[in-house]
């Protein structure tokens, strides 16, 4: 039987993590599957478990004075979907994860910390320039999500640290796009997903972004390619040769794999088709 901790105060959790290496457990919907043994045998956790679901502070969604949105590590997907402050794109991607009962336990930050190439919320969080805040007894550090996700399942989080808050800076878009390709509408892991946003004023593109999920070890987003689109008129970016050229440039970044859910060829073609669809949608 492993030791468990279920503090209600963040400081208590950080104090334990200073001395002991623990498995941090929020909703646990992935952890319980990863550590299960067989029916009627208790899941096999090899190290102490730190439950963070009872830390009320981390169950909050807040707006800071500068408009930054802060989402605590214990906020469930269901809370996120129901909250008025959450950007619609993030709600859409969270609502595509699993089914209601799972979303009542699973957390956004858990999805981030898993660092799965197919994580449903990562593309939108990349698109929104999200940051993560890591806290420990020694202090805290904030880094861009793009620096936090190192590869499949890999993050730079230290054993004494807790990812406490996810931060989303304020931003305005006139148009957004989200498309997840899965085998069915619910309970389907992603084959490929595309999320995009733009700000267009008088047919002039002031901001244009796109991120691709499940087509590379980490989410694909390219600020340099996005800059090729920013500043154009809508009519320019919808010309056939421009679309083809941009597809070719993104094709170099989109390097999916064959696995049990889909093939590399299908994923790449669908990702590039959705890029085209998004370009043609802009007005």
């Amino acid at each position: 039987m492993v030791a468990i901790y279920r503090p209600t105060q963040l400081a208590d959790a950080l104090a334990v993590l200073t001395n002991e290496t623990c498995t941090v457990f929020a909703g646990g919907t992935d952890l319980m599957v990863r550590h299960r043994v067989r029916p009627n045998i208790v899941a096999d956790f090899s190290q102490p478990v730190m439950f963070i679901d009872a830390i009320t502070e981390l169950g909050q969604i807040q707006t800071l004075a500068d408009g930054t949105l802060r989402i605590g590590a214990a906020v469930t997907l269901a809370q996120l979907i129901a909250h008025p402050l959450i950007p619609d794109l993030l709600k859409q991607s969270a609502a595509k994860i699993a089914a209601p009962a799972l979303r009542n336990r699973a957390t956004l930050v858990g999805n981030v910390c898993n660092a799965s190439p197919a994580a449903d919320t990562l593309p939108i969080l990349y698109l929104l320039d999200a940051k993560v805040q890591l806290q420990s007894c020694q202090g805290e550090r904030t880094m861009a999500l793009t620096q936090f996700i190192l590869g499949p399942g890999q993050t730079p989080i230290d054993g004494c640290e807790l990812l406490t808050w996810l931060e989303i800076p304020p931003q305005q878009f006139t148009q957004t796009f989200y498309h997840k390709v899965g085998t069915r509408a619910a309970n389907a892991l992603t084959k490929v997903s595309v999320v995009a946003a733009a700000q267009v004023v008088d047919e002039h593109v002031l901001d244009w972004r796109i991120a691709f999920g499940a087509v590379a070890p980490t989410v694909v987003r390219s600020p340099s390619l996005e800059q090729l689109v920013v500043g154009l008129n809508v009519s320019q970016l919808q010309q056939t040769h421009f679309i083809t050229q941009l597809q070719q440039q993104y094709a170099e970044l989109i390097v999916p794999i064959d696995d049990q859910r889909s093939t590399a060829k299908y994923r790449k073609q669908v990702a590039l088709n959705l890029l085209k669809r998004w370009l043609l949608m802009i007005n």
Partner: peptide, 28 residues
């Protein structure tokens, strides 16, 4: 036993959850 089929559904504080994925410690 992995939160996909819903046969284990119960309510915790009025919310539908998969009892197969919920450690009893979190039910306290």
């Amino acid at each position: 036993n992995e939160g996909e089929c819903g046969a284990c559904s119960v309510l915790v504080n009025g919310q539908l959850v998969n009892a197969c994925l919920l450690p009893i410690a979190q039910v306290s």
